[in-house]
Design a protein around this nucleic acid. Structure first.
Length: 570
RNA sequence: UGACCCAUGGUGUAGUGGUAGCACAUCUGAUUUUGGUUCAGCCAGCCUAGGUUCGAGUCCUGGUGGGUCAACCA
């Protein structure tokens, strides 16, 4: 056992959370137990940002022989729905993770209620009957201390009685809340008597109408961690300011549970994922779906996990991406190119290449016999011989990509142009002899002559030509309905007003899309799949029998920061 | 005129107080029956000023810059 190398390698790549976990383990904290949780609120679909949290929460558990449970933070029934519960579970599994137990914060409503009662009895919580405006006003500002509520020192018995009423249905929403009695002058706004219970009459997706008073996040999250035995409660940076309150409640809880000894959950925070050109706010994504700007949460333009899935992203590529970007406390913006690199890398290795012509123009091989056909062999994946090959029918009248032809070509144009030889992939070398244009000057047919000695595999076929084009036989190809997606999500311009950009996006008259980016397409319907191949490098990452096929064209056009206004997109 | 968090090439991320690495992006060249892939290479970095130290990206202090916090959201 002299190889200390792998271990050292691992040590080097530790992120700061892992370093903390290892330290805790070394110090014997929480009896050397590791337990995490992934705590989504079921109020939307998971997006790529959640993937980062998932990889962290589940990753830590995996790496240190702990457990990671799934816990739905369902303390606000007015926003939540079972539809979201189901999609969240599906997406986590698709990403490649499996939770230990499935919990709900609502499982703890009774325990939380009892805890709240205990706080009231200890004079650490009280019922406030002021309006939300009044309470906000008394809260002060970050630089100005708050003032105490006139209800702050009401008798315990009164609070107890009103708290029960809050849950009985006789109290209207908004007319009464339970507040923790902490410190209205604290420099931490969250300590200024935070609201811990409010009244909501909307039925809960799990508990129905049995509760009317619901705990707030701050009063439910740490407590749920505690009830479950979570040791490392990992979340994003915006919760840093909540941590003192998290600890305050845990302290109170521990006073009631001396039997729990040294155990306590601790919160750690890492930087949230933001991606260039990508809208990540749940609120905005919800708006895009609800108002019909996209076809649903899994619209391929959405940055949701199901959107990426439908677009052809693999779970491996997303995990690799997350691995690459790391976890720190620095709030940066990741270049989406890194994500795209991850999917290209993965697909290059595993995707089967097939043929398709998107924007066809007819190519006639004038010296090829009228009714002759030949079967040409096409390798499925040049990166992997084991993937085999398939056949494509060659004939006199072909289709090629319109942009692969230029009548007057510049020097660096290596594709079809009069007088220049190009190879038709898997077939012959041909030389363009001219074209026919209509009265508007649009090219209708292109003519070329083939060299019979240059069929793939023949000795002459080794002749060097600069360009290789993909093609289909006009007669032996099938139409497919393909919808193109340019990158839709703009935003990202650190100095600009993102909110304004978003409004622009929603305005159909000035729908901004980024041009010059890789074209991505969704195959809506396709007959036999071998007849599709893509521009230059076509990636086809889909079960051929699946109706929900996805295509990714790897055009590798460089991403430019140029915006173009396009109307009537879609 | 608050509290808390943060600062390493264009972007992101490593660096027990001891030669600043890696990935992506860009650009150049080679290979290539996908303008893909692969390979080689270029460009480019420790916010600032002090202090501690033989030695500071790392520790301390002060600046500067950025972020978070004032929902009956999570």
């Amino acid at each position: 056992m002299t190889e200390a190398n792998p271990l050292e390698e691992e040590k080097k790549s530790l992120n700061f959370i892992e370093a903390i976990v290892e330290k805790d383990l070394a110090e014997g904290k929480n009896s050397r137990k590791i337990q995490t949780r992934f705590p989504p609120e079921p109020n939307g679909y998971l997006h790529i940002g959640h993937a980062k949290a998932i990889c962290m929460d589940f990753g830590i558990a995996q790496k240190y022989n702990g457990v990671c449970n799934l816990r739905f933070d369902d303390t606000n029934p007015s926003k939540e729905d079972v539809e979201y519960v189901d999609s969240i579970k599906e997406d986590i599994q698709w990403l490649g993770f499996q939770w230990g137990n499935e919990y709900y914060a609502s499982d703890y409503f009774q325990q939380l209620w009892d805890f709240a009662i205990a706080l009231i009895k200890n004079d650490k919580a009280y019922i406030d009957e002021q309006s939300s405006e009044k309470i906000a006003e008394q809260k002060g500002t970050p630089t100005q201390a708050g003032t105490e509520s006139p209800f702050r020192n009401r008798p315990v018995s009164e609070s107890l009685e009103l708290f029960n009423k809050m849950n009985s249905g006789e109290i209207a929403e908004g007319s009464m809340v339970l507040r923790a009695k902490i410190d209205m002058a604290s420099s931490n706004m969250h300590f200024r008597d935070p609201i811990i219970y409010r009244v909501i009459h909307h039925p809960h997706h799990k508990t129905g109408t049995s509760w009317k008073a619901y705990p707030m996040y701050d009063f439910a999250h740490g407590e749920s961690d505690y009830f479950e035995g979570v040791t490392h409660s990992i979340c994003t940076l915006e919760f840093v300011v909540h941590r003192p309150l998290y600890d305050w409640f845990i302290d109170e809880l521990k006073k009631l549970h001396p039997e729990d000894g040294e155990y306590r959950p601790r919160q750690y925070e890492f930087n949230r994922l933001s991606l260039t050109y990508t809208v990540m706010s749940k609120r905005k994504l919800l708006q895009l779906v609800k108002e019909g700007y996209v076809n649903g949460w899994d619209d391929p333009r959405m940055p949701t996990l199901c959107g990426y899935r439908r677009r052809g992203y693999t779970p491996e590529s997303i995990r690799n991406f997350i691995n690459r970007i790391g976890y720190t406390k620095y709030d940066g913006i990741i270049d989406v190119a890194l994500l795209e690199h991850s999917i290209r890398e993965d697909l290059n290795y595993k995707a089967k290449r097939v043929s398709a012509v998107l924007n066809p123009v007819k190519l006639i091989i004038t010296n090829y016999p009228e009714n002759q056909t030949e079967m040409m062999e096409a390798v499925n994946n040049p990166e992997d011989e084991n993937m085999g090959s398939h056949e494509i029918i060659f004939s006199r009248e072909l289709l090629i990509e319109r942009e692969d032809f230029m009548e007057d070509a510049p020097k660096k144009f290596f594709r079809m142009t009069p007088g220049q030889e190009v190879r038709l992939k898997n077939a012959y070398i041909v030389k363009c002899t001219g074209c026919k244009k209509n009265e508007k000057g649009i090219v209708e047919e292109i003519y070329a002559e083939y060299d019979p000695m240059t069929r793939s595999g023949m000795p002459e076929s080794n002749r060097k030509v600069k360009g290789t084009l993909h093609w289909l036989s006009e007669k032996y190809s099938y139409p497919a309905e393909v919808r193109l997606y340019d990158r839709l999500f703009l935003v990202e311009n650190p100095n600009e007003d993102k909110e304004k950009d978003f409004k622009e996006l929603l305005n159909p008259d000035s729908l901004q899309i980024l041009t010059n980016c890789r074209v991505e397409a969704e195959l809506l319907s396709a007959k036999p799949y071998d007849n599709f191949q893509f521009q230059r490098l076509g990636y086809f990452n889909v079960d051929p029998d699946s109706k929900d096929g996805n295509l990714i064209f790897n055009r590798t056009v460089s991403l430019k920061d140029t915006w173009t206004k396009i109307k009537d997109k879609d």
